[in-house]
Amino acid sequence: MAKNFSRGTERIIKALIETLKPRKPGFDPPAEEQMLQVADDFIGALPSHMKILFPLGLRLLEYGTLIFGPSPIPFSRMSLESRDKYIKGWIESKISLRRDLIKGMKAIAMTGYYAHPEVMKHIGYNLIDHLNKINVVDLNTPPAVPCDEEACNYFRELEKTGKWGPAEGLPGRAKKYGENV
């Protein structure tokens, strides 16, 4: 049971998550619970005015079917296919409020989905391997293992030949204050 929204709101959010969830034949990990948990945490952290406006926006999505179609059935009770068509209408809407609500919900749903271990593995985000590879020295020792061998050699060569460019503190072409470059 979510901590930060009512049962009615939870029903709409679950339907949204089911509609927005990235999936394809052969890959559909059970990430819904994590997506809902993240939505709960994020909604709990909304500023007070958004805590009022966000559920109102969700109600507009739920009952907006009466105005925006494709059928008068509330969003959360539609078939997945109808929900998909209905959401596309919101995403492509000329009214920015409708687009922004879906954008906000997409943000909350996707954060949970792409932080799911199975999903990160599927897309090739092997962060832990990267961290284990590079963090072999203590804080007071310069890095010893290149993040990427080819890039490291390229920049070492630039450094050696003085072609890497200035490392001083002023942005742009200036190296020192008062210098006309």
């Binding site: 997409k106 996707m110 954060t111 932080a115 599927h122 897309i123 985000y125």
Partner: peptide
Amino acid sequence: VHPSLVSLSLPGYGRKSLELMELWN
């Protein structure tokens, strides 16, 4: 940044989002 954050700036949702994010690397 993390794929969660990058996915927010990509177009689409559902299968389209996943197919784009499969190009993560």
